[in-house]
């Protein structure tokens, strides 16, 4: 992948947030929304514009679970592993998902735990890309994954 020192989307994002108090998180969200992740060259550009060191910006990016420094797979699956979902079999669902997704080619899908989607009375819950799903059984998981593969 090319790593330009300067990128047009990042430049316009920085311009859009000029003067905003505490702008770093909104900028990082906008960059990740546009590019899928926060690349090194964006860190440099952001640091330069906000008059911060690259280490400071990098420190913020890596502090928060939401931000990523590598490009995402085509699909991101997040299974809630917090207590409410544990009480309804999230662990079993995660094991099933790992097995099930082992057959999917690399770069197609990535699986992450998430700690609470706020669907705790409809556990276990998960998110496929930006779609929420609740009361997910292993069978329902397989159905949703198949649909995901067919759909996009």
């Amino acid at each position: 992948m090319m790593s330009p020192s300067h990128s047009e989307p990042v430049t316009s994002i920085l311009a859009a947030h000029r003067g905003q108090p505490g702008a770093l998180l909104p900028i990082l969200h906008a960059v990740q929304d546009a590019l899928g992740y926060v690349p090194d060259y964006a860190v440099a550009q952001i640091a330069n514009t906000l008059n911060l060191s690259r280490a400071e910006v990098h420190g913020v990016v890596t502090f928060y679970h939401h931000f990523r420094i590598t490009p995402p797979a085509s699909h991101t699956i997040q299974i809630c592993c917090a207590e409410a979902c544990q009480s309804m079999g999230a662990e079993r669902l995660t094991r099933h998902a790992e097995k099930s997704l082992a057959q999917v080619s690399e770069g197609e899908c990535e699986l992450h735990p998430v700690y609470c989607l706020g669907l705790c009375a409809n556990s276990p819950a998960m998110m496929i890309d930006d779609q929420l799903h609740a009361r997910v059984t292993p069978e329902k998981f397989d159905r949703l994954i198949k649909k995901m593969g067919d759909g996009k």
Binding site: G22, L25, F63, F67
Partner: peptide
């Protein structure tokens, strides 16, 4: 926010709001 549980603590939240 950006997925850090500790930012529910008020002073950590303020730090986060400050970027």
């Amino acid at each position: 926010a950006a997925g850090a549980y500790v930012c529910g603590e008020e002073t950590a939240l303020l730090e986060s709001l400050e970027g």
